[in-house]
């Protein structure tokens, strides 16, 4: 079967779709890390929260209601987190940050159990994107093409903002050297907050679009955390390009590994991670040269 062109097209699309979902998650996490030197291990939980909000709102407001409201709800939660925990922990050192945000994961898992119960929740694909499309000889679900398109759109928008606008220049300056940025009159605290909240909103968006293709369960945030961390470590901390490259590598290795080398699949990505850490410990495209 692996000589069939359709097979390759199908797997490529699957890989791209996984990559784009990972990109939506990892880009926020990596830029937040680049700016604030803060690892938010609960980033995956924000994604899960987004998926739950979208799935439960889709009943009343339809898919698009969830699509819009889930990122907003997660952004609001992110703002609460920022002002209650993150801001005061910025100077607490990496160990304390890891412990606290790791603890948050379990709080989040139990909170989702309490609110939404243990059973997986499903949500339907929007009417507009139901069905399949014939593409290069394969039938592919339109909704999954939409996820790919959405990821590429977000990537294009972020690239444009980061490389062409004053706000983008401020963020790059902050990633390079936040202290000097502050000395040049940039309100770095406000920028940290905005970027953190935007990163949360993107995680919520990822959850909302993933809800119809995955089963929404309390531990989905924990399951996505390791892939997201692998993406940003392979790609290089703090950089948009790194998040793109890391997501693509993870998506393709994972997808093709599963069909071509099923027995090795679970170790393949870790072997790659180890290789990157040995050869380029700072990742493939780190923000700082």
């Amino acid at each position: 079967m692996s000589t069939d062109l359709g097979f390759w097209v199908l797997q490529m699309l699957n890989a791209l779709q996984l990559s784009m979902l990972l990109f939506l998650l990892s880009v926020g996490l990596t830029v937040i890390f680049g700016l604030m030197h803060f690892v938010n291990l609960a980033h995956g939980s924000l994604y899960a929260f987004g998926a739950y909000v979208a799935a439960s709102l889709s009943g009343a407001f339809g898919y698009w209601g969830g699509f819009v409201l889930a990122p907003l709800a997660v952004a609001a939660l992110g703002a609460v987190l920022y002002f209650t925990l993150i801001r005061s922990m910025r100077r607490a050192g990496p160990m304390a940050q890891v412990l606290v945000t790791f603890g948050l994961i379990f709080v989040a898992v139990d909170a989702t159990r309490l609110i939404w119960g243990d059973l997986p929740m499903g949500s339907a694909v929007p009417k507009t994107f139901e069905g399949q499309l014939a593409l290069l000889g394969v039938q592919y679900p339109i909704y999954r093409l939409f996820i790919i398109g959405l990821g590429l759109t977000v990537l294009a928008a972020l690239t444009l903002v980061l490389s062409r606008t004053q706000i983008g220049a401020m963020i790059r300056a902050g990633v390079d050297n936040d202290q000097m940025a502050a000395c040049l009159g940039i309100n770095v605290e406000r920028m940290f907050m905005s970027v953190f909240v935007l990163g949360c909103a993107l995680a919520g968006l990822a959850g909302a679009v993933a809800a119809p293709v995955l089963s929404v369960t309390p531990d989905m945030g924990l399951q996505i955390l390791i892939p997201t961390l692998i993406v940003i470590v392979i790609g290089g901390l703090g950089s948009l390009k790194g998040a793109v490259v890391g997501s693509l590598i993870f998506g393709f290795v994972q997808t093709f590994g599963a069909v071509l080398l099923p027995t090795l699949n679970s170790v393949l990505i870790y072997a790659l991670l180890a290789a990157v850490l040995v050869i380029r410990p700072e990742g493939l495209l780190p923000a700082k040269g």
């Binding site: 004053q166 220049a169 790059r172 300056a173 990633v175 390079d176 000097m180 940025a181 040049l184």
Partner: peptide, 19 residues
């Protein structure tokens, strides 16, 4: 402490726009 990821123009603009 020149910002390495910014061009010379962007380094200048950063301060110029604010002050």
């Amino acid at each position: 402490d020149i910002f390495r990821s910014l061009s010379v123009r962007e380094n200048l603009d950063l301060a110029a726009r604010r002050f």
